[in-house]
Write a protein that binds this DNA or RNA. Structure first.
Lengths: 336, 336
DNA sequence: ATGAAAGCGCTAACAT
DNA sequence: ATGTTAGCGCTTTCAT
């Protein structure tokens, strides 16, 4: 492994000068510089960032903790983070927690030992043990779409309220009065928030006398399908359904199709997430958009700021969500 | 930052002993060990893996280079790699090349400077400049689904031949004689291989007098859609279409639906990849399965072996592909 | 059974 | 304009 000494000898300078040439951190005579660069080339020098990191205390490395890269929620977020990271000469360690808090803690522990400059935690399963671990080690970190708010940490949230309110208004304006909600698993903080936002939105329309009901899904296709089957067994069907995420909505659509109920003719459906899938299924799904790429990018931005200046006041970014109307919602039929 | 010296002082031992306690690398009297562990706890010691890596020359870190995490091909592969990596106490740097060779080269350069123990390159845009860079630095690396074969490097491939042959046989047995192929971008080595495998499969059935034609897509929905529109303009429609990947097939289905052509009644369609989407679209897509999770896992396995023993003979793993029959293929209609 | 000391490749304060 | 030197926190050989 060739190092500064080898280069220095060949170029007849000191290792210090080599360092300064490489980092452009003080003036070096053009001629001297030339010799150093030439020596580097001749020796096929490869920098050792570990050694630099050890000396400087900065690794230019971050950790990104997510639940499961196969969940369509994550790829765009990861892209947003990675892109901005690379642009700033950072590399990112990707860690899947597999929805397992223990694994999350372990991953974060490993990242800290690797002396990453910061961590973005975008795992849905974040609880206080994780926050504690992060706080204890005073590593730089940013929380993405974590349930709780205002705890004095850098964090980014989606404001589901706006989008869900738009969804309800949209349905009401189409004549719907009986609207069901298929939720996510109630263990998830973000799922609970969505339920609350749904209820709040419905309550806002109390003059239209809305009838609603909440069923539990699991944020996967399967759960949406099962919930919809349960709905099908009821005496009076709702005329519209809002789902806690797109996969749930797609599962529900599947069940209705199988049950001979037409979407949107017989029943309107709205999802949440706006994953790529929603444009592909038919009917294309009306849904609430989350800007996942952007939240990833901004998370990285916050982290970079935090790395630059530990003293910076903690920031919170709220990302508005908005309704994207496609084909799965329509006017309520009169005979319904 | 607390280090071995701090622990050593508090425990009244030498830094050497601290090291040996932590790594369990030589016998230490139980009592001494206890004191060391206690000191570590008291000081909330956090290991510095950078320093260890610098001393040992091993980072327990690998790089995973892919084209674009938003491409549904990758998440499962990444999962396979990451899971096995973590199981072996490795962390993985994820790098998106964004289908850009320059970016790929830059990423690999960065990884090498970070002294990763190995690299898995699963970017579809691998060309000789990348191979050269890898060879030059004699870093450990593994190539996934790269176009060329047998170049004396560890590599993993999908054998599209089997799956595509099964697809053609399936179509022929359903009475289809006019079968088109919508390819990927011809700049992609793997796309070219798929074309060749299609032609070979068709030629095998020369006694059934097959009529075929090849159109170019882009491995995205858009390309499939456009190619299908072109097909729709032809005088005689094919009765079946095989696509170079699932997104292409889904695009084609969309175009046919819009054109009033029913799948599979009027035309049968087969995709390739077996991404999650294929089960969700309707009709569910008949497709050729690629075991992406497994290829990721095995890639990591090969890399671990390579890291353990540089001298190991280079390995090549071929992954069979197979047809998954769903709803988008059916008997050719007599009037066609 | 434990310790001293050199070294991994780099940076940076202090000289000159 | 360049060099000397002392670390960064760990491992590991060689002593004792």
């Amino acid at each position: 492994m060739v190092n500064y000494n080898d280069i220095a000898k060949l170029a007849k300078v000191s290792p210090t000068t080599v360092s300064h040439v490489i980092n452009e951190t003080r003036f070096v005579m053009p001629e001297t510089k030339r010799r150093v660069l030439e020596a580097m080339k001749k020796l096929k020098y490869q920098q050792n960032l570990l050694a630099r990191s050890l000396a400087t205390g900065r690794t230019h490395t971050i950790g990104l903790v997510i639940s499961d890269i196969r969940n369509p929620f994550y790829p765009e977020l990861v892209q947003g983070v990675e892109e901005l990271a690379v642009k700033n000469d950072y590399n990112v360690f990707l860690c899947n927690t597999d929805y397992d808090i223990e694994k999350g803690l372990k991953s974060i522990g490993a990242l800290i030992k690797r002396k990453i400059d910061g961590i973005i935690v975008a795992s849905s399963q974040v609880d206080s043990s994780i926050i504690n671990q992060l706080m204890d080690t005073d590593v730089n970190f940013v929380l993405v779409d974590w349930g709780k708010r205002n705890v004095g940490v850098d964090s980014l949230y989606f404001d589901y309220r706006v989008g869900i309110a738009e969804a309800i208004s949209h349905l009401v304006s189409l004549g719907h009065r009986k609207i069901y909600f298929i939720s996510g698993p109630k263990t998830l903080k973000t799922a609970k928030i969505r339920i609350r936002n749904f209820i709040d939105a419905v309550k806002k329309h109390k003059d239209s006398n809305l009838d609603y009901k909440i069923l539990e899904g699991d944020h996967k296709i399967e759960g949406g399908l099962k919930a919809a089957q349960k709905i099908l067994k009821g005496k009076v069907l709702p005329t519209a359904i809002v789902c806690s995420n797109d996969l749930t909505a797609i599962g529900a659509m599947k069940a209705f199709k199988a049950g001979g109920i037409k979407v949107p003719d017989d029943i309107s459906i709205i999802g949440l997430d706006n994953i790529a899938l929603t444009e592909i299924v038919s009917p294309a799904l009306t849904t609430i958009e989350l800007e996942r790429y952007r939240i990833g990018k901004v998370a990285m931005e916050l982290l970079l700021n935090r790395i630059k200046d530990k003293k910076l006041p903690k920031q919170t970014c709220i990302f508005k969500t908005k309704l994207v109307i496609r084909e799965s919602t329509s006017q309520r039929r009169n005979d319904n």
